[in-house]
Simulated assay, not measured.
Amino acid sequence: MKITQVEIFAVDLPLIKPFIISYATYPNIQSIIVKVMTDCGLVGWGESVPDEHITGETPHSTYAMLKNTLAPLMIGQNPMEFERIHELMDKTVHRAPAAKAAIDIACFDVAGKKLDVPVYQLLGGRYHEKFPVTHVLSIGEPEDMANEAAQKVTEGYTSFKMKVGQDVMADVKRIKAVREQVGEEIAIRVDVNQGWGNSANTLQAIRHLESLGIDWLEQPVEQDDIDAMVEIKSKSTIPLMIDEGIRDMNNMREIIAKRAADKVNIKLMKCGGIYPAMKLANMAEMAGIECQIGSMVESSIGSAAGFHVAFSKKIIKSVELTGPVKFSKDLGDLKASYRIPNIQLTERPGLGVTVDEAILAELTRQSDLIE
């Protein structure tokens, strides 16, 4: 099987409401969709949602990278040779993980279809039967966040990821308000997205949070300040998760060596796709560090790719892949698998996602065919 054509689409995915985190507000999500076509007639779908604050890639740069470099590189390649595909991309382009993730995901999708198996069967088989779906609360006023959480509890949600990171004491009020509203049985995870900046601010917040039963505190400090994570972990009873600070194997080696986190948040867009994500999960497992699969708020395509990784690995204990339930219009049909409070994958081959090409055309701003 050989790749004969690659089509690239720049799309705007419409959110039901703006997504607000410490460093940005997103009225919609700019995504790059890749369609890989093969000489046997099979098609694979991939996705890239870059974030210039984390990977240094923008939607424009990612589109250009795929159009001018990575897509032409794939013509004539066997999409089932994952190690070779990544070596070829890495030798040609330094980093650019979100762009590479689109190619990687499309290759896994078409390989699964060729073998008539779900992608998780290519990764060691299915381990988990289902995962709880975590609702993500964007930054807002304490009362508004608490009321939204209360409403979601009535819909069946049992865990929340709170976005904070604008001001330490205001964030403490937000977290306390949500805890008071939902009670002690509901899981709360706090994601600062680097917003508290340093260990001093973080430790100040922790003094107010340690009695609230927080599942974990995620990336409170600047992404490259691994030593600050070490200090916080040594002085806190709240488990510490690293997110923006774990992008590749070099980061993982340092985190393991310094014991800088209790948990790591692996995202396909940060590391380059399914194949590198599995390598990171294996490294974490050897060190006894629990993993989560997170997202950059991808469509059904990118979200399904993350789920296949998560469902195949014992060390992956949680997922936060909520794009399909946050969009007012999606490219695929993964939303049907969200059966609150859980998600269960289908047995369909490849990613298991049917792409609606009419909606893709409607949401596309730009497209190019490489052959």
Rank of each mutant, 00 (worst) to 15 (best):
K130L: 10
L70H: 07
N265G: 08
Y275T: 00
Y127H: 14
M65T: 12
G124K: 05
L321F: 14
E57M: 00
G46P: 03
L42S: 11
L321M: 14
N147T: 08
K314D: 10
I139F: 06
E148K: 13
V297A: 04
P142Q: 15
I340R: 09
V43N: 06
E210N: 07
P349C: 02
K335R: 12
S337M: 09
P118T: 15
I301D: 00
I289L: 12
R174K: 15
V117S: 12
W45H: 11
L209Y: 14
K258H: 06
G165H: 09
V297I: 13
G140F: 10
Y338I: 10
V230N: 04
Q151D: 12
G140M: 04
S299I: 13
V6I: 14
D191Y: 11
V11F: 02
L70F: 09
T237I: 07
A310E: 00
A98C: 13
Q219A: 11
H308F: 01
N28D: 06
L268Y: 01
M74G: 07
A111D: 09
T154E: 11
G140T: 04
N193A: 07
S159H: 08
A150R: 10
E218M: 02
R348W: 06
I232F: 03
K317H: 14
A304S: 15
E155R: 09
